[in-house]
Simulated scan of single mutants.
Amino acid sequence: MKEPRIIVALDFSSAEQALNLAAQLDPKLCRLKVGKELFTVAGPNLVKQLAREGFDVFLDLKFHDIPSTVSKACKAAVDIGVWMMNVHALGGKKMLFAAREAVPPGTAKLIAVTLLTSMNQDDLNDVGLQGDPKQIVMRLADLTQNCGLDGVVCSALEAGSLRQKLNPGFNLVTPGIRLEENSLDDQKRVSSPSTAIKNGADYLVIGRPITQAQYPLQVVQQLNQLIPM
């Protein structure tokens, strides 16, 4: 059986809620993402507990700071046993190199955020970034690959062009995945699971469609039927 490609976003405000959902899921069928809110509330002990229960954990803290600080944070993430972690590509080359040095290949996957999926052209104009979202994502993804990282977080809408240009083994992790009946909420650059995979995504981060479902495992099983494992 091949590795799971679905990463369930544990966007909860307590460890109890996260563990309750994890108890309803199967680590053979999905991985889990712990983000800023949950990590701030529950800390590294929750990550360790989820790992003990067999889950691969994506620590989604988007480290973005001076190189030495990011390096130390990445080393700490390795020490608590995460499967994947991320940094911000906008931190620049020195920061990305420092992160790579802190996370030797084979210890954990190290990826970078290009642009948040909540950002559109108006947001880019506000902060003074030149170019449209696709151009900026391509530029940052190319920088990330050149610095030796394992992949990027990107919108599924940009995955197709990234897959054509970047190395085959370079991972594309796509949040903003919605089922047809789901609302967009605060995400603007979103896609369906089948479209994301068709565009070349390796891993799909899915939150509300699974976490708010009456039978979360059933939804994961249905999604896996649509996704080549």
Rank of each mutant, 00 (worst) to 15 (best):
K2H: 13
E3N: 10
I6N: 01
A9F: 02
D11M: 07
F12S: 00
S13F: 03
L21C: 06
A22V: 03
D26H: 04
K33F: 09
E37M: 08
E37W: 10
T40V: 11
A42G: 08
G43E: 06
N45E: 15
L46M: 13
V47I: 13
K48Y: 11
E53T: 07
L61A: 08
D65Q: 09
I66S: 11
P67E: 02
T69K: 05
S71L: 01
S71E: 13
A76V: 00
A77T: 05
G81W: 04
V87W: 02
A89D: 00
K93N: 01
K94M: 01
F97P: 00
L110N: 07
I111N: 06
T114S: 13
T114L: 04
L115I: 10
L115E: 08
L116Y: 14
L116F: 15
T117M: 08
D122Y: 03
D123G: 08
L124N: 12
N125F: 00
G128N: 06
Q130L: 04
G131P: 14
D132F: 05
V137W: 00
A141C: 13
A141I: 07
D142R: 13
L143T: 01
T144P: 05
N146W: 01
G148M: 03
G151D: 01
V152K: 01
E158P: 03
G160F: 07
R163K: 14
L166S: 05
L166D: 02
N167A: 13
P168V: 04
G169H: 09
T174I: 10
E181W: 11
S183W: 00
L184I: 10
D186F: 10
K188T: 12
V190F: 12
P193K: 09
S194T: 10
A196D: 13
N199E: 11
V205H: 10
T211P: 06
T211H: 07
Q212E: 15
A213C: 08
Q218T: 13
V220A: 14
N224Q: 12
P228K: 13
